[in-house]
Design a protein around this nucleic acid. Sequence first.
RNA 1: GGAGGAGUGGCAGAGCGGUUGAAUGCACCGGUCUUGAAAACCGGCGAGGGUGAAAGUCCUCCGCGAGUUCGAAUCUCGCCUCCUCCGCCA
Length: 428
Amino acid sequence: MLDIKRLRTEPELVAQALLRKGVTLDLDNFQQLEAKRKSVQVSSEGLQAEKKKASKLIGQFVAQGLTVDQAKEKVAEQLKDLDQQLAASAEALQQVQNEIEALMLTLPNLPHASVPDGKSEEQNLEVARVGQPRAFDFPVLDHVSLGERRQQLDFESAGRLTGSRFALMRHEIAQMHRALGQFMLDLHIEQHGYELVNVPVIVNDQTLYGTGQLPKFAEDLFRLSVEQPYYLIPTAEVPLTNLLRDSIVEPEQLPFKFTAHSLCFRSEAGSYGRDTRGMIRQHQFEKVELVQLVAADQSYQALEEMTAHAENVLKALELPYRKMLLCAGDMGFAAAKTYDLEVWLPSQNTYREISSCSNCEDFQTRRLQARVRVDGKPQALHSLNGSGLAVGRTLVAVLENYQQADGSVLVPKALQPYMRGVERILAP
RNA sequence: GGAGGAGUGGCAGAGCGGUUGAAUGCACCGGUCUUGAAAACCGGCGAGGGUGAAAGUCCUCCGCGAGUUCGAAUCUCGCCUCCUCCGCCA
């Protein structure tokens, strides 16, 4: 959530920044609401103060020896009509505040100054290109053909067991998938200094409000049909970032660096017809997530580091990729600055997103009340999240980039220790 | 699932209807003393929000939500979490 104080003090600036994200803020409406809120809140709190005083007065009289009825008699004049006014005033206040809150919840984070203008992914900026796409002297297969040829990728069974956009992996492909997750976790724990966390994949609505998935993006989530407001997580970012909710930490505890390997669930509403073939876009997938909670003045350095941590996975697996700086209009709701990593997919002859690393600044932590004590005063932390990496898409990239003419797939050197030394899978 | 018990500030722990945002201790910060440190002593020390140029001032918060009352940390109801015992279970 945006800082409402900023909206009050520099509304034009905020509106301009929002425009870069493609959001038009009705300033007149906002300022009207604010004016109303101010007057109603001042009078409401004034009435409340009056009532408190009167009640305390009764207490004093009783302490001096009057009976309760006598005491009430003495302040009856003051209390007259107060209740009615107060009730009306409190209700009015609640209503304006609800309206303002509802408005605030729809506003995305502001883009950082270093983020380029742009409406969609066409305006994203390529900032680095690493590795050379391999030249193939045979017709390349996509991962679906590679996997189905040996009955190790089975979308038909998954479709029967559940429905579309689910995958079933077997044997060597299932093993490689598992190995990838373990390999990534170890890298982040041992080389990059992250703490391993095993998170629940079901969370309540409050948690999803904290990171900004609710209320705006409810249709992207799977909600459980139980009495409680329980949802499947769309990413481990949700539980990891919420770990520091309602807490004030000491500066020396920073930075918090969490990693988790989890299942992720997305309803993918509104993406019918996109990436329908294969494992690129699934309702259920695995991801190794990186989350950092850092001091406000450290977050942009942390973003560079965290992106490098994700890149190190691709480098270790020797997968060609490029690093994109997202333009303002293509960024997510909570992000102030985002780098996407896109891996080369030979079958599509293009780069496809495999990681997204964002600095959310204090957009999430403000709601979460995740703070650090600086000079005795609580200050909102900055939160960052990044995929390190999406495991299913990494599997796709390995299968396709390491494929051989006979339909087999070489195992990347770095992955072999995680597959008991196996050097090749899907051999004919 | 059944039966009991408990949720108060960073922690421990009082308060169980009246000027209580909350005693006391520990921790923490500042000071006195000391060559220095420790001890001792003195003082300070929750969060969120409103208003104000500021000093200040006001509101809210004792797990969460309703209710009773002029007044609730204290009473009533519902929910959540944790602990103990029984049952079931991976």
